[in-house]
Design a protein around this nucleic acid. Structure first.
Lengths: 130, 130
DNA sequence: TTGCGTTTACGAAATATTTCGTATATCATT
DNA sequence: AATGATATACGAAATATTTCGTAAACGCAA
């Protein structure tokens, strides 16, 4: 029996940081702050990003290596698990729990390439098989 | 040129109220408050719900008929439009903009009936044709 | 018309989230 | 060891969101 000890859900700002760490792997505060400011219009201060990452470390969303002067942060929250939890909450909140209507909206709105459609069809087949 | 005057995005608590109005149609505060308390564990006070609905009216998410003593509230935010906007924000925030990986997660996690799968397949075909 | 139950109005408290100012520590270079 | 550049720590301000207490207004029944 392993305690899964569910992680708290990240806030919006925290999620942005997680995305960066998921994509880039373990990183310093400066790196993350740089990435945030690439993507955004308004500058975010270095200490703002630092504070958030410290809070996230307290919440166990991140961990860090403090051996070197420049701390290196690592995402503890696993991407798939986090996304799954957020998705469930979102489906309930915005689509009254109907994953299907969410899927229909998502497919309808965005333009989806043939490759992606094939992926989805393959998944559907897999589900249908059992 | 019709001004679409984008509505502000509802907060979580506001979205719960919208869901109820979308489903039930124009309703009084007491009705909405009752519904909220059916679905939830912790009691939400009448004036709490009232205040939220008043704020939402200011934001134009709702409108109300004040002719009778008991005001009747109506959802101004259209369900599909609101869902679409929320979905876009969510896909960006949690799935780095990839609607497809969201769809894959959604289909993978939830158990989806054959009817629903058929619906989705039909939509995919339609997309592939057009 | 008086009183009771219900409603809305208003403002503020409680909470959560985001941002930043300032102090302090560390390292590398001189 | 002193200096400058860069790092973290801490606390608090700014903002957004949620909740509620209290008062005033209304309508109905006695």
């Amino acid at each position: 029996m392993s305690k899964k000890s569910n992680l708290p859900q990240p806030t919006d700002a925290e999620l942005e940081i997680l995305q960066i760490l998921w994509e880039a792997g373990p990183s310093t505060v400066r790196f993350v702050n740089g990435r945030l400011n690439e993507q955004q219009e308004k500058e975010i201060g270095y200490t703002t990003t630092l504070k958030l990452m410290q809070i996230m470390t307290e919440k166990k969303l991140l961990s860090r290596n403090t051996e070197t002067r420049t701390h290196v942060y690592l995402a503890e929250a696993v991407q798939e698990v986090t996304q799954k939890a957020l998705l469930k909450k979102f489906v309930d909140a915005a689509f009254q729990g109907s994953a299907t209507s969410l899927v229909m909206q998502a497919l309808g709105n965005h333009q989806t390439s043939q490759e992606e459609l094939d992926e989805i069809k393959a998944l559907i087949e897999k589900i249908e098989k059992g």
